[in-house]
Design a protein around this nucleic acid. Structure first.
Length: 415
RNA sequence: CGGGGUAUAGUAUAGAGGCAGUACGCGUCCAUGGGGUGGAUGUAGCGGCGGUUCGAUUCCGCCUACCCCGACCA
């Protein structure tokens, strides 16, 4: 992609009204734009990052048998009344509900259990049809009392939510842990190594215990208690042990940490199915309520989390899997014609190259490259051309490497 | 929702009860060409409503928006 044609506008100074690292860097780098508190536009760079993450999540959801769909965001009151959630105090606090000019009442989606159940119950289900596993990427609206921290807590954000319906509790349990495994795989692919699977309460969603996926980070809003030795972890809400106490699993020491929640999984059992009449025929021909699970990942929040975690004094340092471009090609001085050739050669192999073709000073181009944070920077200049070479540098490293012009395409094939 | 803070150009910032300034950005021109290069020139601004005043962007009040702490939290 050509820089000059890409609507990339970096800022020289930090925005005065943002203090969170992710908001500062993403705004400065031209990844996002703020409409209002908790509501951001993803600009071309930011959307590329989002799409990288989305594709990874999609692959892992498909791998566990999920079918991708897209459910509506505008919901009629009636379906929410069936579960009794429309009038629920906790729900009313976060759900945007309103009356239209036609005097009918609507709500904006903050989750999709009701809609998913409504979709599946319209078909005669037998145990042979189950499980059903559907997921989608879509906007969630939540009237947060306080939006904050850039992309970490918005009033409108993108979530991946997966819903599953089962004929037996054990089947739900199995799938529940299968999703947990897929989630850890996703986070690992994104470069998030130390994600804790934390036992927690279900908030407005369920009275049973659930599991959250938490990244340990100082800006986190959550507090978790986790074992220093094994995988045991509890959310503060349900935690009854003291710091320094022994882990109930392995006897190791319990530590506390701030963390950011990036995913959450729920087992609802048959509660909502009973309320909404979501039944299936078992092998004996009897109608039984189906078992529901739901599983979320905060997609847009994940962009913020990565920005928050992967940066330095000069800008973002994207993990390879989420970087908007793999290669940031900078041409200096009279090297533009050669740069164009290289650009075309690399672009022919993959679209993952951004060529800064602007007529700007070296300092501007190099600073912007740091700010944008692609994993590899290639410089081609009169100086490097004297050696028939380009300079290659990894974003997180100081070291530069000279690579012969003739070998550059091959070089990138092998990384 | 409670507490604290802020509001001047696209961005970041000065400023005074009486013509609003600087830097960056953006436009044009010249020079330059490996870490936000130098010079010339142009462009664009006091969040809203009300009060005090001859006169308010400045003082006062209210509102709104944004940020932070707390409460809350798929």
């Amino acid at each position: 992609m050509l820089y000059s044609q890409s609507f990339i506008n970096t800022l020289r100074s930090n925005p005065k009204d943002e203090t969170s690292i992710n908001a500062k860097l993403l705004l400065r780098g031209g990844f996002i734009d703020k409409l209002m508190a908790g509501s951001y536009t993803f600009l071309p760079l930011g959307w590329r990052v989002y799409q990288k993450i989305e594709e990874i999540v999609r692959q892992e959801m498909n791998a566990i048998g999920g079918g991708e769909v897209l459910m509506p965001l505008l919901h009629p009151k009636d379906v929410w009344n069936e579960t009794g959630r429309w009038g629920d105090k906790g729900v009313k606090e976060i759900m945007y509900q309103f009356k239209s000019v036609d005097d009918r009442e609507y709500g904006l989606s903050f989750t999709h259990e009701e809609i998913f159940l409504d979709v599946v119950r319209k078909h005669s289900l037998s145990y042979k049809n189950l499980p059903v596993k559907l997921y989608h990427f879509s906007t969630k609206f939540r009237n947060e009392p306080r939006a904050k921290s850039g992309l970490l807590r918005g009033r409108e954000f993108i979530m991946k939510d997966l819903y599953s319906l089962h004929s037996a509790e054990e089947d739900l349990d199995n799938f529940y842990w299968q999703v947990a495994g897929a989630y850890l795989k996703i986070f690992k692919r994104l470069g998030l190594e130390n994600v804790k699977t934390v036992e927690a309460s279900g908030g407005v969603f369920t009275s049973g215990h659930t599991h959250e996926f938490q990244v340990i980070h100082p800006v986190g809003e959550d507090t978790i208690y986790h074992c220093a030795k094994c995988d045991w972890a509890h959310n503060k809400e349900i935690h009854i042990h003291k710091i320094g106490a022994q882990c109930p699993e392995c006897g190791g020491e319990v530590e506390t940490a701030s963390s950011i929640e990036i995913g959450n999984i729920f087992r609802f059992g048959t509660v909502y199915s009973e309320k909404m009449g979501v039944n299936f025929k078992n092998a004996d021909g009897q109608l039984k309520p189906a078992y529901l699970g739901s599983y979320g990942i905060g997609m847009s929040r994940l962009v913020g989390v990565l920005a928050e975690m992967f940066n330095d004094d000069f800008g973002l340092v994207w993990p390879a899997a989420a970087a908007p471009f793999k290669i940031h090609l900078v041409s200096l001085g009279g090297a533009a014609p050669k740069a164009e050739k290289i650009y075309q050669q690399i672009a022919a192999e993959s679209a993952e190259v951004l060529w800064d073709d602007r007529d700007e000073s070296p300092g501007v181009k190099l600073s912007d490259a740091d700010l944008i944070g692609a994993p590899y920077r290639i410089i081609i200049s009169d100086k490097t051309l004297e050696k028939e070479s380009v300079e290659v540098k990894r974003r997180e490293s100081e070291k530069v490497e000279m690579v012969k012009l003739d070998n550059i395409v091959e070089w990138f094939k092998n990384i």
